[in-house]
Amino acid sequence: MDFTDDQLLRYSRHIILPEVGGKGQAKIAGAKVFIVGAGGLGCPVGYYLTAAGVGTIAMVDNDTVEMSNLQRQIAHSVNTIGMPKVESAKKTFEALNPDVNIIAIQKRMSKDDIADLIRDYDIVVDGSDNFPTRYLVNDACFMAKKPLVSGAILRFEGQVTTILPGEGPCYRCLFEEPPPPGLVPSCQEAGVLGVLPGVIGGLQATEVLKLILGKGEVLKGELLIYNALKTTFRKVKVPKNPACPLCGQNPTITELIDYNEGYCSPQ
């Protein structure tokens, strides 16, 4: 890859890292990442991957920007209230780094379109805020053999794990089925410390860059749990479940499922 003078400066702190170099930066520039959600997690993930120079970043989200998002969704602003979140994020990311091709997709994905949407991408990042999407993304990535970097946040706690196709467990090995809607915290209960998605999204973006570079170790078969109140990081080993309904020996889930609505999706 031939870098322009601006690119040499922009990426100089990457290029001088032995683990990255010009070759690693070229890999980053050639990578295509698909981000599910342009909310709390999707904003920092997209923001840092844009800064890092990831060549193509797609974001899918159906929502529009609201005032109550701004406490944590850092790609949006008072100037973009009412705008689709994916358009608002695209504007922000393009201002940060014009090298990056940002593809904004305003929709709620379903079992009928997710496979087509993720087909051209190397890595999928889940920053969704609801269980139906989380399971849909897990199942679709398993079937399409795409690496998935999954993140979740609630109140003061966040989780990250990286699911690699054909290696280690999937999300259903961890939690077989979505919880019934009644057991999911209601909107009033579902508070979140504004900075928490920044920590978790930052970890997700780091996992993505390591996957692109092929350096270091990712959270394969491990769930990293961050507690912001206690300032603790805990790694929990997650074994592959031989009876997993998706990736186990006798899978019962062989096609994608749209779970019913009725889950709270906090704005």
Binding site: L8, L9, R13, I15, I16, G21, G22
Partner: peptide, 10 residues
């Protein structure tokens, strides 16, 4: 700097 080392490294 940092051009000097960046160019040399590349």
């Amino acid at each position: 700097c940092p051009y000097t080392f960046v160019k040399s490294k590349l």
